[in-house]
Design a protein around this nucleic acid. Structure first.
Length: 290
DNA sequence: CGTTCAACCTGGGCGC
DNA sequence: TGCGCCCAGGTTGAAC
């Protein structure tokens, strides 16, 4: 589920916990998958208890909770990657069964910070400065989608023969776009998702960048897209509202709101792509207001 | 090198 | 009711 707008909403929903100290940490379900948790639960607990949450950051589709300095280790970051079904919560989780992490904080109200993940594809990592750079630094993640420019997209993708929709999902090129927002961005920019990057002019990369910033900012303002409950909720258990603004994603067969033509669904690199075959035909280049 | 694909998981929805 | 299949907001390492 979570793409940039949802993860940013999670970040904002837990940011007020900064300044509090960790009282206890529980990993209720053994997530033994090697990649899902590093280091192992016991080590993780030892290194977390007693630490203060210094700040809450976002890198692409990841939340990074900065921890205060500790002797010998220095500053560390608890990096959570929700992937498909992970949720950062301060509210009660949808079920007890897929609760992956529960952090209790020292405060009168005894707030808890939870990571709940139905499918269990999400990851929890505790990283030092070097690890953070390796995982979330500029070698791994491109410019953030909220601020990416046409020049940057052109430079990073202009030579690629990949279809533009596929390329926009490449986190190394631009960070934060996922399957929903790729579709909505290309509709807003009136670009055919099948067009190879190498055939896109600089002017059109500017359009795509503007649409990226605009759609993502609007989606953040509306606290993300809740398509089905239990896949995405805000940290305090409210639904996002941007799904009401989706023009193509999930609307296969419905008439386009611009032109009336039926929205199509195709598959690109094993994932659904939704688009309007009229408004996003590659011989057309109308610029659309966001 | 760039690009594609199966695998990692659980669960909802649909047709039979 | 139940079974089998397809689908789902992401990323990775191996294979082309």
């Amino acid at each position: 589920m979570p793409e940039l707008p949802e993860v940013e909403t999670m970040r904002r929903g837990i940011a007020h916990l900064a300044g509090l100290r960790i009282e206890s940490v529980v990993f209720p379900r053994d997530t033994v998958r090697p990649l899902s948790m590093q280091p192992a639960a016991e080590t993780m607990q030892q290194r977390l208890v007693g630490r203060m949450l210094a700040a809450v950051h976002r890198f692409g589709k990841r939340v990074a909770i900065e921890l205060d300095e500790r002797e010998r280790v220095g500053r560390e970051w608890l990096v959570i990657e929700p992937r498909m079904t992970g949720l950062m919560l301060v509210a009660d989780p949808p079920t007890q069964t897929h609760l992956r992490m529960e952090i209790s904080l020292e405060s009168r109200q005894h707030p808890r910070l939870l990571f709940w993940d139905r499918r269990g594809l999400g990851t929890i990592r505790l990283l030092d400065e070097r690890g953070l750079t390796a995982a979330c630094g500029p070698d791994r993640l491109g410019p953030d989608g909220l601020v990416v420019t046409g020049d940057e997209l052109h430079e990073r993708l202009g030579q690629s023969r990949r279809a533009v929709k596929v390329a926009l999902l490449d986190q190394q090129a631009v960070a934060g776009i996922g399957n929903i927002y790729a579709a909505e961005i290309l509709f807003a920019a009136a670009i055919d998702p099948r067009v190879p990057c190498s055939r896109i002019s600089l002017a059109r990369w500017e359009q795509i960048a503007a649409a990226t910033r605009g759609i993502l900012a609007e989606a953040v303002r509306m606290e993300g897209s809740t398509i089905t409950d239990e896949t995405y909720k805000t940290a305090d258990n409210r639904s996002g509202q941007f799904q009401l603004q989706h023009r193509v994603y999930g609307h296969e067969g419905e008439p386009c709101r611009q032109c009336g033509m039926a929205i199509r669904r195709i598959v690109q690199t094993q994932r659904s792509t939704f688009f309007c075959p009229e408004c996003q035909w590659h011989h057309r280049r109308r610029c659309r207001r966001l």
